[in-house]
Simulated scan of single mutants.
Amino acid sequence: MASIAHHPAQRRRPAKRRHHAGPLVAPVAVFAAVCVIAAAYVGYVLWPRWPDAPVATDAPSIPITVGGTVFNIEPAAVRIPSQRHAGSQSRIDIAYLWPSLMPPDPSLKVIDGKPVDPNERLFALIQIDDGALPLAERVKNIYPRYLSKTLASGPDGLVVHPFRAETPYEGEDLVYDQTQRFLTRCSRQGVANAGTCLLERRAGAADVTFRFPREWLSDWQNVAAGIDRLMARWRPNT
């Protein structure tokens, strides 16, 4: 009689339980990743870095980015030495000789046979847009609240519109031509004040403010043309 081999019964191992990820795991992981990336970016921005060495004043134009807008500016025209380097900056202070629009050169004493007048300067400030209303909007919606009702004639067809006393622009005039292509805000001349004019332009996300003596209004058409030439020189591809 054939013997039957009895094999011990194999014990069944309990099945492993599968853990299912909860519905909040994925969003939490994404949020954590975003926090890590944000922290890394803030650390990179705030990490102290040595500034670039200033460029020599006799170097050719260098690309300077303000508010994402690139300007090609001669280092000699940059008034503050620490700003004389390529790359991104929050503001640039500039000066040019007038009317030649040449960068100031301490070694240059004569231009076109005439002595250089150190006071003949066209100044400019390029800075990131601070969120203020564009000039056209201010002329339309802000300035009329503070302007007087009387107008005066200025040099060579300009219109002089005074601001009223006891307003934020007291002591200033809005000066413009008939087309308002040339429009500037000027302080009035006084005993100790020769008067200064501010003319604004917008370039991308950067604001450009030109500053010049009020007496230049007698030659305002050349002033306007000179400012146009500078803007074209700084941004030749626009």
Results as ranks from 00 to 15, higher is better:
D93T: 12
I92M: 11
M102H: 08
G157A: 05
Q83K: 05
I111D: 06
G131H: 03
D156E: 14
F182I: 07
S100I: 01
D112M: 04
Y176W: 06
R188W: 00
Q178D: 14
P99R: 08
E137V: 13
Y169P: 01
R188C: 04
P162F: 05
P144I: 04
P81I: 10
G87Q: 03
Q178S: 10
W98K: 00
Q180I: 08
I80H: 12
A132N: 12
P99T: 06
S187N: 10
E137M: 15
R145M: 12
V191G: 02
R188P: 04
F163K: 03
V116W: 01
E74P: 06
C186L: 02
P118Q: 13
K149C: 01
I126G: 05
Y176E: 13
M102G: 01
F163N: 03
R145Q: 14
P106R: 15
T167E: 07
D117A: 11
T179C: 01
L133K: 13
P99F: 06
V116S: 02
H161P: 13
S90H: 07
F123V: 08
P104M: 07
G131M: 08
R181M: 09
G87I: 04
R181D: 11
P103C: 08
S153F: 03
L135D: 14
N141V: 14
Q178P: 01
R138D: 10
R121H: 09
E170K: 05
A192R: 07
T150G: 05
P103V: 00
S148I: 14
H161Y: 03
D117K: 12
I94K: 00
D130E: 13
D173Q: 02
P155L: 03
A152V: 00
D93E: 11
V116P: 00
L147Q: 14
D105E: 07
D156G: 01
F182A: 09
S107Q: 09
Q189T: 11
L147T: 10
